[in-house]
Design a protein around this nucleic acid. Structure first.
Length: 584
RNA sequence: GGCCCCGUGGUGUAGUUGGUUAACACACCCGCCUGUCACGUGGGAGAUCGCGGGUUCGAGUCCCGUCGGGGCCGCCA
């Protein structure tokens, strides 16, 4: 007797059919004579009725929650007054003729049945640690299963689209050398070569570039990547990228193709139509308007320059910042903020590097607050302020002032419950190629050292490196960076120049990625690409609180897996084989 | 490396200014009940309050440490 249907797939049309179902007991209701069992599989629930004189009765009587059953019976239409409109299969029920307990189950450590009845799921409030320890039960919950299936649909849509566009999927190795992404590597000791190590890839970056040298022309991969850094709600040590690379293209080609890909994915996986093209926002403008290189453009509250307001004011704290080359930026909160709110916002500003958050309120009776005596009401109104608002200011170095105020902007939106809905994709483009590392006193790459500058900016590499724009871009969705890429350097001379600017000696470059530099010498085509943070993408698509919710078996903030208890000690024998010794 | 929050039956919570039988809901077990669908109903079992130490006549409650979980900064695209 094989299964004939999924429980959740039965409908009125199946009335009269003899069916065999296999699934889990979602809920059992014993009325003393009649027994009802809501049988569950991945497609949903169906009510099974067991009559006292049925041969199925004894087993139904013994069944408990999460027992695994095989039921055969007849689909029967329910009388009008017994239709359950909460249930997709609510117009029918299955009258059991036989019922077999395929396996018993212990009572689960947390409730997993409610989500299938369309109610608020109490498991959403169960500690995540417990859910991870019993992840196989957690994944029985409808919400979690839905996310697994969303992930499947998204990856399927990516494959379909890129295949149709002429891309070739290529797998690159897990056991490899360190790639220059700048994060800490996970290392794997070599048994055959004592004292040497593989590194797990932080991204397939160099391999995909070498695939371009190979003439693959259009490559993609759903690539697992590994970075040994501290975890966050949106960061796991192993995570998944959609990685792609194209030859003979410029930025516009990559943006255009990725926009169509995103639109295809949203259409296929969510049924959502996205308007194309996505806005393209230069980095400097994103910073000036939103104080972020990943702006949430679903709401306004834009930042604005306030240098002039303070240039001639008596507010010395700001004046001195301006005189030493800093900037003042402001933000108009559309509310008269309380002391408590202002304190919270200042806390946010400080946490992100600002010295403080200055504020002034404007109203029919003029200005009030600490800045009131330093500012002219007319000047502030000329700046844009109207009655009932609170103007917030930060003065600091350009990027510090903007980043801090950008965070204040986000906190303010939360505080005021600003409406944030929709799917706001955009490209942040024209990133600086280099950024000054004040700790090490040298220029360092913002993306990675293989990122190409704009041709016309190359002369600036010597004269004013900070002004060089990279042909690099990020894909941003609702304030999250969901992808990043660049046109790569394909000529060895420019690559050498880059290492020189970065202060990386030729010998060191040769030692670290000589194999790759060599590849550039053999006719590397112009090329570029992008990688999507697939987990972040999915978390946003499914409104998950963290990427852990879209990763089947994620790790906790301390990098542990409560299910397997990894990482774990290994035997002395294993260590010896790998030529390793633990040093306390 | 740093800042902040949390830790009470299986689960989620409550627990006065420290006061002795640690409460409630759901789940679980047993009985009754033939149309329920969050079934109903009667009964029952189950936590020494993450762990260790301290203060106190007395600690779930206060203090210190530690472990675990979470958010963030640093770090990381």
């Amino acid at each position: 007797m094989k299964r004939t249907h999924y429980c959740g797939s039965l409908r009125k049309e199946n009335t009269g059919q003899k069916v065999v179902l296999e699934g889990w007991v979602n809920r059992r209701r014993d009325l003393g004579g009649l027994i009802f069992i809501d049988l569950r599989d991945r497609e949903g629930l169906v009510q099974v009725v067991v009559d006292p004189d049925s041969p199925a009765y004894a087993a139904a009587d013994a069944a408990r929650g999460e027992y695994v059953l095989r039921v055969s019976g007849i689909v029967r239409e329910r009388p009008a007054e017994q239709i359950n409109e909460q249930l997709a299969s609510g117009e029918i029920e299955v009258v059991a003729e036989s019922l077999e307990i395929l396996n018993e189950a212990e009572t689960p450590p947390f409730a997993i049945d409610a989500s299938w009845r369309g109610e608020e799921d109490p498991a959403e409030r169960v500690s995540e640690d417990l859910r991870l320890k019993y992840r196989y039960l957690d994944l029985r919950r409808r919400g979690m299963l839905d996310r697994l299936r969303l992930r499947h649909r998204v990856i399927k849509a990516i494959w379909d689209f890129l295949h149709a566009e002429g891309f070739i999927q290529v797998e690159t190795p897990f056991l490899t050398r360190s790639t220059p992404e700048g994060a800490r590597d996970f290392l794997v000791p070599s048994r055959l070569e004592p004292g040497k190590f593989y590194a797990l890839p932080q991204s397939p970056q160099l391999f995909k570039q070498m695939l371009m040298v190979a003439g693959v022309d259009r490559y993609f991969q759903i690539a697992r990547c590994f970075r040994d850094e501290d975890l966050r709600a949106d960061r796991q040590p192993d995570f998944t990228q959609l990685d792609m690379e194209m030859s003979f293209v410029d930025q516009e080609d990559i943006w255009e193709l990725n926009e169509r890909l995103v639109a295809h994915v949203f259409k296929e996986a969510l049924g959502v139509e996205l308007p194309l093209p996505f806005p393209r926002l230069p980095y400097s403008e994103a910073m000036e308007r939103y104080g972020a290189d990943k702006p949430d453009t679903r709401f306004g509250l834009e930042l604005r320059p306030a240098d002039e307001l303070f240039a001639s004011s008596g507010f010395n704290a700001f004046k001195s910042v301006l005189e030493s080359g800093g900037v003042v930026r402001g933000l108009l909160a559309p509310a008269s903020l309380s002391r408590k709110q202002l304190a919270a916002l200042e806390e946010t500003a400080k946490r992100h590097g600002a010295k403080g958050l200055a504020w002034v309120k404007i109203g029919p009776d003029g200005l009030s607050g600490p800045l009131a005596k330093f500012l002219e009401e007319a000047a502030l109104r000329g700046w844009g302020a109207v009655d009932g608002q609170t103007a917030l200011f930060v003065a600091d170095r350009w990027n510090v002032a903007l980043e801090a105020l950008g965070q204040v902007r986000l906190a303010l939106a939360d505080m005021l419950n600003v409406e944030r809905s929709g799917w706001n994709f955009l490209w942040v483009v024209d990133f600086p190629l280099l950024e000054w590392d004040s700790d090490q006193e040298l220029w360092t790459y913002m993306h990675h050292p293989f990122t190409s500058p704009y041709e016309e900016d190359i002369p600036l590499l010597d004269s004013d490196p900070g002004k060089v724009r990279a042909r690099a871009y990020d894909l941003v969705l609702n304030g999250s960076e969901v992808g990043g890429g660049s046109i790569r350097i394909h000529r060895i001379e420019l690559q050498k120049k880059m290492f020189q600017v970065l202060g990386i000696p030729a010998e060191e470059a040769e030692e670290k990625f000589g194999f790759f530099l060599e590849a550039l010498r053999y006719g590397a085509p112009p090329h570029g690409g992008i990688a999507w943070g697939l987990d972040r993408f999915l978390a946003l698509m499914s409104d998950a609180g963290s990427i852990r919710d879209v990763i089947p078996f994620p790790k906790t903030q301390s990098g542990r897996d409560p299910l397997t208890n990894a990482p774990a000690p290994v035997s002395e024998e294993q260590l010896a084989e790998l030529h390793l010794k633990i040093v306390e």
